[in-house]
Design a binder for these strands. Structure first.
Length: 928
RNA sequence: GCCCGAGUGGUGGAAUUGGUAGACACGUUGGACUUAAAAUCCAAUGACCAUUGCGGUCGUGCGGGUUCAAGUCCCGCCUCGGGUACCA
């Protein structure tokens, strides 16, 4: 019989469930540890082998921490709102809730089979009213808050109103889009609508007209991070720019805190860098230019105020409010045509035509505030309305885009920075602009001769004194568009009275999704919720018809796990004070600019409200790599039904076709299975090599259409969950992308069978003895404990698995069947392979779960060696080995090495110049 | 374009951070057991040269450098993967 994983795994999975082994509560006698996986969106195709990779790693860590005496919170749930279920609903009429429920059930079955230590009593689902009540609640708090730049935190709108009533807004330093200054008197004279409109400019969740990423195919707007290269991330549909009234979150207010917070996080440098780039802080100055003949001024943002003397023209974004006003009559037509063209270009066009230089002269002139020189004002779409002030001063000599523009339209180029010790040259001879971050200012008035850094500081100082500008910081981070014109998401807890949005009373939450007849927009283009009957408050006011985006529900889910059944609050004070924040978070790095930013923002906001106790949600983050599929190909001879084996395909004119990897074993195709696969292959003929059909292969994304999906259920069926767990870890470093190849799973399976043989004989009789272990056996054990502990703490799970293999191989060689060795070994193995470990632990006579055992402690005394086998190298090349006592002095080691018989041939006829001895490492002889 | 990350046997990957390159597996080859197969076990397996035995040369993407010693550090390239994209 031997190792019967099927029986063992079912048995212990039941035992764990029935005895609630993974249920966890607050326990003040133990230190807490919070291990979290990014929860999955339950898709219709179920889990493939790539999904559990991170879950297995975090499960090993969670189990390890438990063995080390921590009270471990390790929950799981579902990111249940999402487009696929809704798209399916549109096609079939099946309610997305039904699809989602079905998919969750399948996910749960698959997850259960892998033997995770999740506390399912804490499961959350983003579409569960008990859960999204708090998503809606948080939205209301955002609506009722503003960001005070003086205190660098969110504060209640109610207090802001009090300030307005007392002194107006002049002294308020807020993250705001409010431009007009008003007095207390003016505030009081505003009507309700005007006041609400004003407050909207301060709220952290606010409604405003904004340029959005509109995706016609999905019928909704998308956030910036949901658009990749001008196409929607989901589905790859084209995205257009459109002006729409949308809910937004003022995440830009938190830009600096989001940036600063990164410094103290144990995240990979790459993901921190991605976030830093996304936030995009840049320091510089805003400078005010007068417009000749107008009272209006143009404010520009520049990171290089030291190049003001080189500004030879100005450029406004097509959307800039002054374009129309300042354009001279004879340019009107050209400019308005250009602006219309620029506005209508899709995102995609705009991005693909980056190199195309376009623009129009307005006919107006700006006046350089430092030099008094007149510079022409142009309109061009290389200047973005959404960044800085939507206007720039162009310094063609030192900016590549300005340079290209100046060359194209024949505008003057003046050099104002040069490299130290270099003579300025004629820009007309240049091929590109001169990047001058470390230079010396020339031809630049009072900063001439200064180094760039001090020149910038000096200009900022002077323009501030002169009142024509100031030092400023700009961020690339945009506010997050929070409305989706979709059905399957959280409804906004907002109603409209006279067109003004108001939040629902908290007692009205959760506001559940209404029923609709079909999941499509209305004829008039309103979102699906507008189809619902009676989508209004008790008083009859219409409710918001947009729904929230996918990242709404995932932004604060880690907090709800701490106290998932609380109906009084998001989570209790006691729970958050105990569990604090996530100690270890595992997930894919594709969430670098989305979820991980939103979630940090959400947490910081709740922190400002005094709800969370940590400023950052995820202390340590590990991004597991993707598992790629290994696709197989057959080669059809064109125009025939003949298939030629890989090695012979170059002799024919062939077409490459994906075949299902389940029919391929080590590149050899099961030709009979292939014939049965599809009717058109029934009469397939094969041109074989050595009697076999060899397939070609390539490593690519795992997907249905490539027939390379490996699902964990089949592998568990064949090898068991423990083998699957070990194999996924054995594949390679956790954070690295790697191809999936089922071939190697045999090796791991063999290891478990071999381990089993240490405990049982051929007739399944336990052969474990209570005999005292030998020094050699103790050494194997303690070496392994040390290695396993080290590897788990380093998240080096692949080397951990090989350490277990080495250990088992060595114990087999030693013929060791001793409890003193095997009992700790079963504990050691339990994080990786919990089922077999639990079985062995109980077979050894333990009646409690192995999860409550104590992780064994390795002791140095078993590891000490009396001798060390030195590699002896001559001029860096290893020539022979010599075993010497470890406590030998350097001089004696040197002597022993040089006197060794093998050494003579390398020394002969040469002079020994030097001998390097590194104790317990190496001996290197330098001989010439 | 800019910013990260990675290139090691036929394959996945190791290498205590500058100290025996290729651990552990897969695969392959040969052998044992078996009527046979599966399973299991044993041996070989970086390339090349030599071979009766000992052995030798080369080798971590490429080219240079530092060092007694480089997969690891420095300089310059190449290739692949990811992020970002007119951000002033």
């Amino acid at each position: 019989m031997g190792y019967n994983f099927g029986k063992i795994e079912a048995k212990w999975q039941n035992y764990w469930r029935e005895n609630k082994i993974y249920h966890v509560d607050i326990n003040h006698h133990k230190p807490k540890f919070y291990v979290l996986d990014m929860f999955p969106y339950p898709s219709g195709s179920g889990l493939h082998v790539g999904h559990p990779l991170g879950y297995i790693a975090s499960d090993i860590y969670a189990r390890y921490k438990r063995l080390r005496g921590f009270n471990v919170l390790h929950p799981m749930g579902y990111d249940a709102y999402g487009l696929p279920a809704e798209q399916y609903a549109i096609q079939t009429g099946t309610h997305p809730a039904v699809t989602t429920e079905k998919n969750i059930k399948r996910y749960r079955e698959q997850l259960d089979k892998i033997g995770f230590s999740f506390d399912w009593d804490r499961e959350v689902r983003t579409n569960d009213p008990d859960y999204f009540k708090w998503t809606q609640w948080t939205f209301i708090q955002l609506f009722k808050s503003w960001f005070n730049k003086d205190t660098e935190k969110a504060e209640p709108i109610a207090q802001l109103v009090e300030t307005f009533e007392k002194e107006g807004n002049a002294a308020v330093n807020a993250a705001t889009t409010q431009e007009e200054i008003f007095t207390a008197g003016q505030w009081k004279q505003m009507n309700e609508e005007q006041q609400q409109e004003t407050l909207m400019n301060y709220r952290l969740a606010y409604l405003s007209d904004t340029m959005v990423n509109w995706c016609p195919a999905l019928g909704t707007v998308l956030a910036n991070d949901e658009v990749k290269e001008g196409l929607s991330e989901r589905g790859g549909h084209p995205v257009e720019r459109k002006m729409m009234k949308q809910w937004q979150l003022r995440i830009s207010a938190y830009a600096q805190r989001l940036l600063d917070g990164l410094d103290n996080l144990e995240w990979s440098d790459s993901i921190k860098e991605i976030q830093r780039n996304w936030i995009g802080r840049s320091e510089g100055a805003s400078v005010i230019f007068n417009v000749k003949g107008f009272k209006d001024t143009i404010e520009v943002f520049t990171t290089r105020p030291d190049t003001l003397w080189g500004a030879t023209f100005m450029v406004l974004a097509p959307e800039h409010e002054l374009v129309d006003k300042i354009t001279v009559p004879e340019q009107k037509e050209r400019v308005s045509n250009y602006v219309a063209m620029a506005k209508n270009r899709s995102e995609r066009e705009r991005m693909t035509e980056v190199k195309k230089i376009t623009g129009e002269f307005t006919g107006a002139y700006g006046i350089n505030p430092l030099t008094g020189r007149e510079v022409p004002i142009w309109v061009a779409d290389y200047v973005l309305a959404g960044y800085g002030t939507g206007a720039i001063m162009a310094v063609p000599a030192h900016d590549s885009r300005d340079f290209a523009f100046a060359r194209h339209f024949n505008l003057p180029i003046i050099q104002v920075v040069t490299k130290e010790g270099e003579e300025p040259s004629d820009p007309a001879t240049w091929e590109e602009s001169y990047d001058s971050k470390d230079g010396i200012s020339i031809n630049s008035g009072f900063i001439t001769g200064m180094k760039t850094k001090e020149a910038i500081a000096e200009v900022i100082k002077r323009i501030e004194e002169m009142g024509i500008g100031k030092g400023t910081v700009n961020y690339r981070l945009r506010d997050a568009i929070f409305s989706r014109q979709r059905y399957w998401g959280e409804p906004f807890p907002i109603y409209y009275k006279n067109g003004i949005p108001y939040p629902l009373d908290e007692s009205e939450l959760p506001l559940k999704l209404p029923d609709v007849d079909i999941f499509l927009p209305t004829e008039t283009g309103e979102p699906p919720l507008a189809r619902a009957k009676n989508w209004k408050t008790k008083e009859g006011y219409p409710l918001e018809t947009n729904t929230m985006p996918g990242f709404a529900g995932s932004s604060g889910y880690y907090l709800r796990y701490m106290d998932p059944h609380n109906d009084e609050a998001y989570f209790s004070k006691e729970a958050v004070e105990y569990w604090q924040n996530v100690d270890l978070y595992l997930g894919g790095d594709e969430h670098g600019t989305g979820h991980l930013i939103y979630s940090r923002f959400w947490n910081k906001f709740l922190f400002d409200l005094g709800l969370t106790v940590k400023d950052e949600p995820y202390k340590k983050l590990i991004n597991q790599g993707k598992i790629q599929g290994r696709s197989s190909f057959v080669y059809r001879v064109k125009g025939t039904n003949q298939y030629v084996s890989y090695g012979l395909k170059d002799n024919y004119d062939t077409q490459e076709l994906h075949v299902d990897v389940s029919m391929v074993d080590g590149d050899v195709l099961d030709t009979e299975a292939f014939k049965k696969w599809r009717p058109e292959y029934a009469d397939a003929e094969f041109i074989l090599e050595d009697g076999k059909y060899y397939c070609g292969h390539v490593v690519e994304k795992m997907s249905k259409s490539k027939y390379n999906v490996q699902n964990p259920d089949d592998l568990i069926e064949r090898y068991g969950a423990d083998t699957l767990r070990l194999y996924e870890m054995f594949l390679g470093p956790l954070e690295q992308d790697k191809p999936w190849d089922t071939k190697g799973i045999e090796g791991v399976y063999r290891f478990l069978k071999k381990l089993w043989r240490l405990f049982f004989d051929e007739d399944d009789r336990l052969i474990v003895s209570n005999e005292k272990a030998s020094a050699a056996e103790m050494k194997v054990l303690h070496k392994t404990i040390k290695k396993i502990q080290h590897d788990i703490e380093q998240f080096s799970f692949n080397t951990g698995v090989s350490a277990f293999m080495i250990c088992t191989n060595e114990l087999s060689d030693l013929n060791c069947h001793k409890r003193e060795i095997l009992e700790p070994l079963s504990v050691l193995l339990s994080p990786y392979a919990p089922h077999i470990a639990e079985e062995l632990w109980h077979q050894l006579g333990n009646s409690e779960t192995v999860n409550d055992a104590v992780f064994p402690q390795w002791e140095e005394k078993y590891l000490v060696e009396n001798t060390f086998t030195y590699p002896v190298s001559f001029n860096g090349k290893t020539r022979f080995k010599i075993e010497l006592p470890v406590d030998l002095s350097k001089a004696d080691i040197e002597k022993a090495a040089l006197e060794a018989p093998e050494a003579q041939k390398w020394i002969e006829g040469k002079t020994v110049r030097k001998v390097i001895v590194v104790p317990k490492r190496i001996i290197n002889v330098v001989a010439k």
